[in-house]
Design a binder for these strands. Structure first.
Length: 481
RNA sequence: GGCGACGUGGCCAAGUGGUUAAGGCGGGGGUCUGCAAAACCCCUAUUCGGCGGUCCGAAUCCGCCCGUCGCCUCCA
């Protein structure tokens, strides 16, 4: 299989360094509800690890939680709680949202605050090698000593000088230098260090954690394209100068940003849809179909129309997978060609749009085959299996709760009319199943007697309550709309 | 200003040198049905932002132009 790498800009054969594929994915800074941009990234790298495992690789995945940061502290101060409380709360809801989105859990999920000693080790090592220096209780990375700095984001020193922020009273040797350790300020969480109390800079945690849990060189590093500079550039600088091993990462995978309207969906811009809100209106599968329907490196624009289209498509797959059909007598539908197409697509740098196309073709051909009396059992299993690699659950919409009162009211109204119509009326029970069974059997009688007006009244009445009736060859079935 | 992408049917979106330009959604027609729903069938881009060029041959390569976006500050 082939994977694109941001650093080389090329798509090359995937050859892991060791037996176990090592993968590091940047996690979130939990200071607020997560949005669909986070969900998109999580889903893409979920699919990467699901597919690698499917292809027989052992995969070890680490994802950090940046639980100490300016934004967490600011928010905590505003609300009068501790930073740890804010971080804990949102880290927990992120975890729950990932579960709801069917993102498979990572193997190791370290928190920055629990890895301070690891980070201090790395920082000390960098100072010892001349790649970092302490100043006024802070420690900075010395960019000019890393001659290939800028290689990931393709930036050159002199052009970067222009944009680099130089704050007043700056103790940096060079404006490009970035902070590894921040001297403590009053009212902020801090830890002891050889340079006094302080807290870690943002980038250092990823270097520390990936080195500690995955080794000095790793196979895959993932994250959003917005992390390329400065975050990943700085990670490379820190890690490579600390370990002396190049390259730090063999395959840099970056997913395109999720746009909302004309801009990137982001917390700081305030234009976002939270995962929570999305899931009240749509299924997890619909977001998968939406995200995976486009190439992971390209930006994707969120629109209600596009999401509704994805939802319709997802619903169709759910119906096909869950349809109960008596096994056909004629020959079986052979799923191999679809399976092969799926693999071929996924092997080509995770071409999920093509992979999904294969699934939709398979779904259509399952329906067609069963219509012709063929056995599509094996094909249906394949659809389920391949969909599972993409993390599809094949679960329908969250069951809309149906009010029993209007249903009872409808049932008794229909019972009255049934008597006049000379059809045996059912009892108005207290549970939905019984009432539905009764209504369906009444409607059956009515249709047999060609009393279509009243039969349709049942169907229309149910429809108004949110229940759909379908007359299939196996009889009438009902479902929540 | 620097760096990097992108522009394909009504909408979303694959394809990146050569048989009929995937797939989804939507729309139109049909089959089934008492009527529906679901499902299936058929139709819906001679054309890939514009203009030049390379080539036997380009949506795919090159140049210019127009338009959109991301990064350059925290960000998945």
């Amino acid at each position: 299989m082939k994977i694109s790498d941001t650093l080389s800009g090329k798509k090359t054969d995937f050859k892991p360094i060791g037996k176990v594929v090592t993968m590091y994915v940047c996690g979130v800074t939990p200071y607020d509800d997560s949005h669909l941009g986070h969900a998109m990234s999580a889903i893409i790298f979920d699919v990467v690890r699901r597919y690698l495992r499917f292809r027989g690789y052992q995969v070890k995945v680490v994802q950090n939680i940046t639980d100490v940061d300016d934004k967490i502290i600011n928010r905590a101060n505003r609300l009068g709680v501790t930073a740890a409380e804010i971080a804990g709360k949102y880290a927990q809801s992120y975890k729950e949202e990932m579960e709801a989105l069917n993102v498979s859990p990572v193997d190791i999920n370290p928190k920055a605050t629990e890895e301070i000693p690891t980070m201090l080790e790395v920082i000390k090592g960098l100072i010892a090698k001349g790649f970092a220096y302490a100043a006024n209780g802070s420690v900075y990375y010395r960019v000019k000593n890393k001659t290939d700095y800028g290689k990931l984001s393709r930036r050159k020193f002199d052009t970067m000088m222009v944009g680099a922020s130089v704050e007043p009273g700056e103790e940096k040797e060079d404006p490009l230098d970035f902070v590894l350790w921040k001297a403590a300020k009053p009212g902020e969480p801090s830890w002891e260090s050889p340079w006094g109390k302080g807290r870690p800079g943002w980038h250092i945690e990823c270097s520390a954690m990936s080195t500690k849990y995955l080794g000095e060189q790793i196979d895959i590093h993932g994250g959003g394209t917005d992390l390329v500079f400065p975050h990943h550039e700085n990670e490379i600088a820190q890690t490579e100068s600390y370990t002396g091993k190049v390259p730090f990462v063999k395959y840099w995978m970056h997913n395109g940003a999720l746009q909302l309207g004309a801009e990137k969906m982001s917390k700081s811009l305030g234009n976002l849809v939270t995962i929570r809100d999305f899931l009240t209106k749509h299924t997890p599968d619909s977001f998968r179909i939406f995200v995976l329907g486009s190439y992971y490196r390209s930006p994707l624009t969120y629109t209600e129309e596009a999401v509704a289209a994805a939802q319709s498509g997802a619903d169709r797959l759910v119906r096909v997978v869950n349809k109960e059909v008596a096994a056909g007598k004629k020959k079986a539908l052979e799923p191999k060609p679809y399976y092969d197409r799926f693999i071929e697509a996924m092997d080509d740098d995770f071409n999920t749009p093509q992979a999904i196309a294969a699934l939709f073709d398979l779904a259509r051909d399952i329906n067609r085959a069963e219509e012709e009396g063929m056995n599509a059992g094996k094909a249906r299993e394949t659809l389920k299996e391949l969909g599972g690699i993409l993390g599809l659950t094949f679960e329908g919409k969250a069951e809309a709760t149906i009010d029993i009162e209007p249903l009872k009211k409808l049932a008794s109204a229909i019972n009255q009319k049934a008597k006049t119509a000379g059809v045996s009326a059912g009892a108005v029970a207290d549970d939905i199943e019984t009432i539905m069974a009764s209504l369906i059997s009444m409607r059956k009688e009515l249709r047999k007697a060609k009393q279509f007006n009243l039969a349709d009244e049942i169907r229309d009445g149910l429809s108004a309550i949110g229940i759909a009736l379908e007359d299939t060859a196996q009889g009438t079935v009902w479902k929540r709309k």
